[in-house]
Amino acid sequence: MAKKPQLAVDTRPWRDPNAKPFVRIKNVTKKFGDVAAVADVSLDIYKSELFCLLGGSGSGKSTLLRMLAGFEEPTSGTIEIDGQDMTGVPPYQRPVNMMFQSYALFPHMSVEKNIAYGLKREGMPKDEIAARVEELLRLVKLEPYAQRRPHQLSGGQRQRVALARALAKRPKLLLLDEPLGALDKKLREETQFELVKIQETLGVTFIVVTHDQEEAMSLATRIGVMNQGEIAMIGEPADVYEFPNSRFVAGFIGSVNMFEGVVTEDEADHVRIRSAEAGCDIYVDHGVDCAPDQILWYAIRPEKITLTRERPEGDANIAKGIVEDIAYLGDMSVFQVKLDSGQYMRVTKANSERGDPNAIKWDEEVYAQWSGGAGSVLTV
């Protein structure tokens, strides 16, 4: 008799209602004068997560990170790390280390001595320091560079030295403030994967602050999107991108087309929206918590839309327009379509063929079409 295949165990503790958070932020507010940089934030982060706090300038993400590190005290609320209340606990007594955007390496010390610095300050025996430094150099793939000074290294190598130094004291929690911000685009992309591998190897809980949406999507087990001191949404990268909970989140993560409309049909299995901005009816193939005649917004990503010269069949999700601009980006092309309604729609198409002779050109009349499940209906 054949054995039943075993189901894979879900290793995502945030999906388990009984899992105990490793970091618990409860109703934390931080005011500077009358201004709340962080406003009543509650957030649970679990052991071995790589959690990203994502937000624009002034969203409160760095202030929240500094409170976790102990550099700022909350005006109200509590922070617990590994079950311990951090109220009044100074930075040097917390099971936390922080890696800054500037890396803050000692220019007169070799790579080896930079990594060993904190361990020497703690009075660790020399042989143990040497073994730990060797282990970390191997982990960040910098063994051949042990005797070099920071100015003799590339930006990516300096970033890895700073990471090794931050990990030397084996913190339970590592806080990273815009860790890849100083690197160029290609190196940043390469380093993202290295950072994930290192985090998975060590199992240390990482909390990363970034303003870069692509970086957050590449690194994170979960993302907390921040806006004006509040958490706008928490979710796994795919959920935040595909199922945003508000116009702000939809617009902040990636590129999106947004159309206002009015509900004309509200059924259990579908909704129809009349949208003057889209210039067509929008059909959604699932129920939505809304009322007839309610004004709402429909968000659809550029890659979910198909452009054709001939009008497709159907009475919804078909918008007509003229191609005003095309940007060729190598792996894909971006089409800027001016709809008959006067609104603009952004459409992307993967360049799977070389020199496609049938590719849509500038000034062509086109029809943009999408499926009933392609977009998100937003009420806020």
Rank of each mutant, 00 (worst) to 15 (best):
E190S: 11
E143V: 14
L163S: 06
L173Q: 01
S102Y: 11
A19F: 01
L136S: 10
E324L: 11
Y46T: 07
T75G: 02
K4D: 11
L142D: 00
R274Q: 13
K185H: 07
D281F: 10
Y367G: 09
I81S: 04
G355N: 15
A168H: 02
E128Q: 15
V249Y: 00
R301M: 08
N97F: 03
L54D: 00
D281W: 00
H151N: 15
D269M: 09
W14N: 03
E236V: 05
Y117T: 07
G373L: 11
V240I: 15
P312Y: 03
V9R: 10
A168I: 04
Q343E: 14
R188D: 02
P95A: 00
D266M: 14
A276T: 10
V96Y: 01
K349P: 00
R272Y: 10
H270E: 03
I129H: 04
V111A: 07
D356F: 11
Q6S: 13
Q343W: 05
I326S: 10
Y283D: 06
R272N: 08
T379G: 01
P95N: 12
L139K: 05
V263G: 14
I79P: 06
E200W: 00
L7D: 03
Y328F: 15
I326Y: 05
P179D: 03
R274C: 00
A216T: 04
F243L: 01
P95D: 12
E190A: 11
L43C: 09
L119C: 02
N18H: 14
E242Q: 12
V347T: 06
P244M: 02
S110C: 04
G279H: 01
A19W: 07
G235S: 05
M124T: 12
P144W: 05
L64P: 05
A238Q: 09
I234F: 06
G33S: 07
D10G: 07
L136R: 07
R346L: 15
K338P: 05
R149F: 13
R132D: 04
I282T: 09
G321I: 10
M226S: 09
I318A: 14
Q336T: 15
K3V: 08
T205Q: 05
V196G: 03
A232L: 03
D281A: 11
T264M: 11
L339G: 03
D34L: 13
G118S: 02
K141N: 13
E265K: 13
A359L: 11
S371G: 14
V28K: 07
Q84R: 12
M345N: 02
D356V: 13
K349Q: 15
I322W: 06
G60M: 12
V347I: 15
P179Q: 04
L136F: 07
A131Y: 05
P144Y: 01
P179R: 03
G181I: 08
V28Q: 06
S42T: 10
E267I: 06
Y92F: 09
Q336N: 14
Q213W: 09
E194W: 04
P74Q: 03
A116E: 12
S371L: 10
I207W: 05
A319H: 03
Q6I: 14
A374T: 08
P13G: 03
V133S: 03
L187C: 04
S110Q: 01
M67G: 10
E277M: 09
K304C: 06
S102L: 08
L43S: 04
Q369D: 08
L339S: 12
S62R: 14
A216S: 06
G330S: 10
V249F: 00
D266N: 15
I207L: 13
I25L: 08
T75E: 01
